[in-house]
């Protein structure tokens, strides 16, 4: 899965790795060595630092990490949306073409036809003054679908996401929907272009548990039906475990660990992942109380020279504070910890 042993450097990979000429083996999304820097006065460390991430067709990949770790920025980069003034290094390939090198027309094509995004807060991502019908059909209309057909398709989509009375729903305004219902509408809109890749940025964080289950169920059903690849951003490890095939764990702009989901939970390799697991409250009757991770996440204004997690890590040694660990892969897993091989977490 990982064709490099170390992935900590920020240089772009060679442009062709031999497989893309065949066309088939090109991953749906392949982020390599992505580093995103703000102007020096705005931040002491890069927002994203040498991120490597890939999503294959039909696969669900989780991206987990604390607030401010750079998950949303990574997602938006896939759509070619960089923070103002940011400089990017590395490549972000969607079906083999680098989004970072694209012109306006290419980006438009990617956003319209290949990649769709669902945001955390459905209220913030729809125009409150426009009817749901307009919101759903605008994407289709710019693609040249006639109005009647677009409306029919919108109704079909609303049915698919489980909205009763889809015909009536088209005429309603966003505030007439509950959060869960509105998020379904947003998902319907995201799927209207039949994208190959869906970026779901904490799509259920604003919803309660039962609604979350329904929305995730809908996402999964549609994903299976359409063969969509999904990058699912969340800070809920349990949720990620329940729906993802593989998980990337991010801390302070770096990928610190990635593993297939079962292994990640059974054998976390990075102390941060282990700490995150221990801090998640569990429902089981015999579960221990959640263990807080001391301290707080690293802000953009801080640039610790060594491992970014060292200050909060129970296993940190002197070396951790001075030497930044590279992401080292080992079969399907990868971990960026100097002490990963010492069995500290057993």
């Amino acid at each position: 899965m990982f064709d490099k042993t170390t992935a900590g450097d920020t240089e772009a990979r060679p442009a062709t790795s031999g497989t893309d000429t065949a066309g088939r083996d090109v991953p749906l999304l392949d982020i390599a060595g992505l580093t995103l820097r703000l102007p020096d006065h705005a931040a002491a460390r890069p927002i994203l630092d040498g991120v490597d991430l890939r999503v294959d067709r039909g696969e669900t990949v989780g991206l987990v990490g604390e607030s401010g770790s750079g998950k949303s920025v990574a997602c938006r980069t896939v759509l070619g949306l960089l923070p103002k003034g940011a400089r990017a290094e590395g490549t972000v390939r969607v079906e083999g073409t680098d989004v970072l090198a694209m012109g306006a027309a290419g980006l438009r094509d990617v956003r319209r036809n290949k990649v769709a995004m669902v945001f955390q807060d459905p209220r913030a991502s729809v125009n409150p003054m426009r009817r749901v019908g307009d919101f759903l059909t605008e994407g289709l209309r710019v693609r040249g679908v006639p109005k009647e057909q677009a409306l029919a398709r919108a109704q079909e989509l609303l049915t698919e996401v489980g909205i009763r009375d889809p015909h009536g729903a088209l005429r309603r305004f966003p505030h007439q929907f509950s959060g869960g219902m509105l998020q379904r509408v947003v998902i319907a809109a995201a799927l209207s272009g039949d994208p190959a890749l869906l970026l779901a940025d904490e799509p259920t964080t604003a919803l309660d548990v039962t609604t979350q289950a329904e929305v995730v169920g809908i996402l999964r059903r549609l994903q299976h039906r359409h063969g969509t690849g999904m990058l699912f951003v969340t800070h809920d490890l349990e949720l990620a475990a329940a729906i993802c095939d593989r998980i990337y764990v991010m801390y302070a702009g770096r990928i610190v660990e990635s593993q297939p989901v079962a292994d990640l939970f059974a054998r976390p390799r990075h102390p941060y992942t282990a700490a995150l697991l221990a801090s998640t409250p569990r429902l089981e009757a015999d579960a221990a109380a959640p263990q807080p991770i001391p301290g707080r996440p690293v802000s953009l204004a801080e640039a610790p020279p060594g491992c970014a997690f060292a200050a909060r890590c129970a296993f940190a040694i002197e070396r951790c504070r001075s030497e930044a660990p590279a992401l080292v892969s080992d079969g399907p897993a990868a971990v960026a910890c100097l002490r990963a091989d010492e069995g500290i977490l057993q």
């Binding site: 301290g295 707080r296 204004a301 801080e302 640039a303 909060r312």
Partner: peptide, 16 residues
């Protein structure tokens, strides 16, 4: 707050 800030290269510990 309990964990001390890392010995960082930039100005001492955290931004004030």
């Amino acid at each position: 707050m309990s964990a001390s800030a890392p010995a960082s290269v930039k100005d001492a510990s955290t931004p004030t």
